[in-house]
Each structure stands twice: as C-alpha cells, then as structure tokens.
C-alpha cells in the first residue's frame, strides 16, 4: 500500500518534506495504525504517538488524506492511495507526525475543567436524577485528541484567544452538570468576543470528531444560556 508521509526532524531537515513509502501489508493489518507500525519496523526514524490502539486514549490523531482522525480506528479499506499523512494542522510540529499540544491544553485548562462545588458533600454520593445525568451524554466522552480544535479555522487564526471546540465542549460539560455550582463564573469566563464568540459555526469539529461528539451543539447551548442570562 502506498503512503506519502510528512517528515520533519528539526535536527537535520531545513524544512519539512513528504516521503513516499510502499508498505507490504499483512492480511491481519486492519487499521491505519497497523500499517504505520509495520512501516516503522523498517524505518524506525518515523515518529508518531500511539497507545491504546482502540480509539479511547486520543494519542494517534493526525491528518489523514486531508481530514483529521485517529489512525487506530481508521480502516485501511476506506483510504485512497497514496495515503497522505500529515501532523494535525495549526499546531507547531515537534517532529514528523508529532505536534506540540501545549496551546490546546492551555485553552482546555482556561475553562477550569473540573467540578466546582464547595458545599460539604454528603456522607454518600450526591444524588443526580437520570435525566440530569443524561445531560452529560455526548460531553464527558471527549478523549482530548484535538482533532476538532485543529480542524477549526477560528482556532487556527486565534489559538491564544479562542478556547476552541474541545475546550468549549468541556466547559459545557461542567455547566450542564447538576452538581456544578459555578455556572455564572463559567459564563463570565467565556463572555468575550474571542473565547466563545469566535466560533462561526463552520462545523468542522462535528465533521471530524472520532467519538461522534458535537462540540458545535455544546457551543450553541452556551450561547443560548448567555442570552437567557442577559434578559
């Protein structure tokens, strides 16, 4: 199978280039990650992240034939050759397919991604109704792979000011949690021409999310709550 892969090692390359590979696959190779690992057995200089190989840890996000996704759950049969692999767009490249995710996590951390409830907890669990719990479905499952934020033009232009779809999904995850008592503080933190309102509903985030989550809907919900709060 034919691949064309973005290569860049700052120690020896003046600039990035695309390298062509022809990989002899094994009949058991099912996913893109299997193929890249097979390739690395012959060229150990190719650098990429990977861990769980089942789409739950979020390590192996990359740009696959122009679209962000996870290599471990991308079936080889779905891919047009040569398969072009590039690092996630919009973030600084450390080496080959490995990007520097600092800015992504900085934005995540800016929304206080943890439950805030300073009341004395009961001896047992805090009760939560089944319908309140259902509000968290589609939000808590995020794996922080960054496919969404690095597919978002608003994040490309303003990575330091716009929280980005992953961070906003996390913000709404806590706003929507019946146990969280910091909704107003969270909304204040987002009510800003950039942090929330740079989202132009381009919906790339929804299109690429490997967990089929919908950051765009979460962003709209935050907007609605802000409008409600204003009147």
């Amino acid at each position: 199978m034919k691949f064309r892969i973005y290569r860049y090692d700052p120690e020896k390359d003046a600039k990035p280039y695309l390298q062509d590979y022809d990989v002899q696959l094994d009949p058991h190779d099912r996913m893109l990650l299997d193929a890249i690992i097979r390739l690395k057995a012959f060229d150990d200089t190719l650098a990429f992240r990977r861990s769980c190989r089942e789409g739950v840890c979020g390590s192996d996000a990359m740009n696959i034939n122009g679209k962000n996704g996870l290599a471990c759950i991308t079936n080889l049969k779905e891919l047009k050759e040569p398969v072009e692999l590039r690092p996630l767009p919009g973030l600084p490249v450390i080496r080959d397919l490995i990007v520097d995710m600092s800015q992504f996590f900085k934005q995540l951390h800016s929304i206080k991604p943890y439950l805030i409830n300073d009341t004395q907890p009961p001896e047992k669990e805090r009760l939560q109704s089944q319908s309140d719990r259902e509000e968290l479905d589609g939000l808590y499952e995020c794996i922080l792979c960054a496919c969404c934020s690095t597919a978002c033009p608003s994040f490309w232009w303003n990575p330091d000011k716009f929280v980005g779809p992953a961070g906003l999904l996390a913000a709404y995850r806590f706003i929507a949690d019946s146990r969280d008592l910091a909704t107003n503080e969270r909304l204040d933190n987002l009510e800003d021409p950039y942090r929330l309102f740079r989202c132009h509903t381009i919906m790339n985030c929804v299109d690429v999310c490997p967990k089929n989550l919908n950051p765009s809907r979460a962003i709209n919900k935050i907007r609605q709550i802000l409008v409600k709060r204003a009147v």
Binding site: N117, P121, E125, S129, Q130, R133, L136
Partner: peptide, 15 residues
C-alpha cells in the same frame, strides 16, 4: 463521585 465522576444513575439518583 464528589470529584465529579459521571456515574450512571438509578431512578432514585444513586450510583
């Protein structure tokens, strides 16, 4: 649970 873990719930709100 107090840390915010999203456990599934029973009709009475318990884990």
């Amino acid at each position: 649970e107090h840390f915010g873990m999203p456990f599934d719930r029973n009709p009475d709100g318990t884990i």
